[in-house]
Computed example of a mutant assay.
Amino acid sequence: MSKVKVTAFSISLDGYGAGPDQSLETPLGKGGEQLHEWFIPTKMFQRMMNKEEGTEGTDNDFAEKSFENIGAWIMGRNMFGPIRGPWPNDEWKGWWGDTPPYHVPVFVLTNHAREPINMKGGTTFHFVTDGIESALEKAKKAANGKDIRIGGGVSTIRQFLQAGYIDEMHLAFSPVFLGAGEHLFAGIDLPKLGFTDVQTTYSENAAHVILKKGK
């Protein structure tokens, strides 16, 4: 059965998924790059960067698993790119160049319409202007029975959490404090949303926590 999942989402020990003062130069906010130090060295990430080297082990296992059985992605506009407001032109096609690592349809939440972008490797970016329910409906059709991955950022995940649409989350807690920024769980009652099953695996660089809704 298709699941709506958050996977390999990095978070600080004090609950922030991005630092303060996000900008083109610091898209993850001040200190936000520290959240991903468990992921960047992995063989999975290095392969995404078209490199052969990379670490194996627990972190890489979780990185690899995060892409398994994914039939569609949903992401916020900030995760697609740094541009705000109306699209000035069609030049920006995402952070990842001509061959993004998604390889499936990706539905980008935005207030500004744009024609779909077909990329190499099977990725097509669709721009959804009528809310998360519409994006989820479109993603389910595109996924054709596979899972839907909610890719972030924090605001997007919070919207899907608060609406009760997320079935499972894999959070990678990095051993850093940010102190400010975008907090993932502020005002969110996870037990009330049905998350009761917790599994934790530790690596040298992160605590990998799986949260699932109880049966």
Score class of each variant (00 low, 15 high):
Met1Asn: 02
Met1Ser: 15
Met1Ala: 11
Ser2Arg: 03
Ser2Lys: 01
Lys3Gly: 03
Val4Lys: 02
Lys5Ile: 15
Val6Trp: 14
Val6Met: 14
Thr7Gln: 15
Thr7Ala: 13
Thr7Val: 13
Ile11Gln: 01
Ile11Met: 11
Gly15His: 04
Gly17Phe: 07
Gly19Pro: 09
Thr26Glu: 13
Gly29Gln: 10
Lys30Pro: 00
Gly31Trp: 08
Gly32Trp: 07
Glu33Ser: 08
Glu37Cys: 00
Pro41Trp: 05
Thr42Glu: 08
Lys43Met: 03
Lys43Cys: 10
Met44His: 14
Phe45Ser: 11
Gln46Pro: 01
Arg47Leu: 03
Met48Ala: 13
Asn50Gln: 10
Asn50Glu: 13
Lys51Asn: 04
Glu53Met: 04
Gly54Asp: 07
Gly57His: 06
Asp59Ala: 13
Asn60Ile: 06
Ser66Tyr: 12
Ser66Thr: 10
Phe67Tyr: 14
Ile70Val: 15
Gly71Tyr: 07
Gly71Ala: 06
Gly71Ser: 03
Trp73Val: 06
Trp73Ala: 03
Met75Thr: 02
Gly76Asn: 07
Gly76Phe: 06
Phe80His: 08
Arg84Ile: 09
Asn89Ala: 05
Asn89Glu: 05
Trp92Leu: 01
Trp96Arg: 02
Gly97Thr: 02
Pro100Glu: 11
Tyr102Glu: 09
Tyr102Arg: 03
His103Ala: 10
His103Asp: 03
Val104Gly: 02
Pro105Glu: 00
Val106Leu: 06
Val106Arg: 01
Val106Cys: 14
Phe107Asp: 10
Val108Gln: 12
Leu109Tyr: 15
Thr110Ile: 08
Asn111Ser: 11
Asn111Gly: 15
Met119Ala: 00
Gly122Gln: 06
Thr123Gln: 01
Thr124Met: 05
His126Asp: 08
Asp130Thr: 15
Ala135Met: 14
Glu137Asn: 11
Ala139Leu: 12
Gly145Glu: 14
Ile148Leu: 07
Arg149Tyr: 14
Gly152His: 09
Thr156Tyr: 07
Thr156Cys: 06
Ile157Gln: 05
Ile157Thr: 01
Arg158Ala: 04
Leu161Asp: 07
Gly164Ser: 03
Ile166Ser: 09
Asp167Phe: 04
Glu168Ser: 12
Glu168Trp: 13
Met169Gly: 00
Met169Ala: 06
His170Thr: 11
Pro175Tyr: 00
Val176Met: 08
Ala180Met: 10
Glu182Asp: 06
Glu182Arg: 05
Leu184Glu: 11
Phe185Met: 13
Phe185Gly: 00
Gly187Asp: 01
Ile188Trp: 02
Pro191Phe: 06
Lys192Gly: 11
Asp197Thr: 13
Val198Gly: 04
Val198Arg: 09
Thr201Asp: 07
Glu204Lys: 13
Asn205Asp: 14
Asn205Glu: 13
Asn205Gly: 04
His208Trp: 11
Val209Phe: 05
Ile210Cys: 06
Ile210Trp: 14
Lys213Gly: 03
Lys213Leu: 04
